[in-house]
Amino acid sequence: MIINHPLLGPRDAAEFYVMGDADLINRPDPDAEGAAEAFYEYAYLRDNPAGEHRELWYHEQGDRSWLVVTRSTLTHEIMNVEMARDVALAKGRGQ
């Protein structure tokens, strides 16, 4: 597979480590009500779609960026690649 890195262009997937669903960015608020349930769902339940899937890839043998790759689980076609940090910031994650 080839991942079109936003900064570095097309790179062989062999340079990456893949972790799974990009929903892992959305770590729940530990102080919110129902946090135990929220953490259980966060850590264990997955949509696992047949089709478009947003997932986390880490450029371990590259610039060490975590990326959010939007890829079809049916054809493997990659529709979009973003810097995970930007995605996290856009979701309002900070400190």
Binding site: M19, L24, I25, R27, L56, Y58, S65, W66, A84, R85, V87, A88, L89, R93, G94, Q95
Partner: peptide
């Protein structure tokens, strides 16, 4: 991961 994705600020 923690640095870039959980606490990017």
């Amino acid at each position: 991961f923690a640095r870039q994705c959980l606490w990017p600020g």
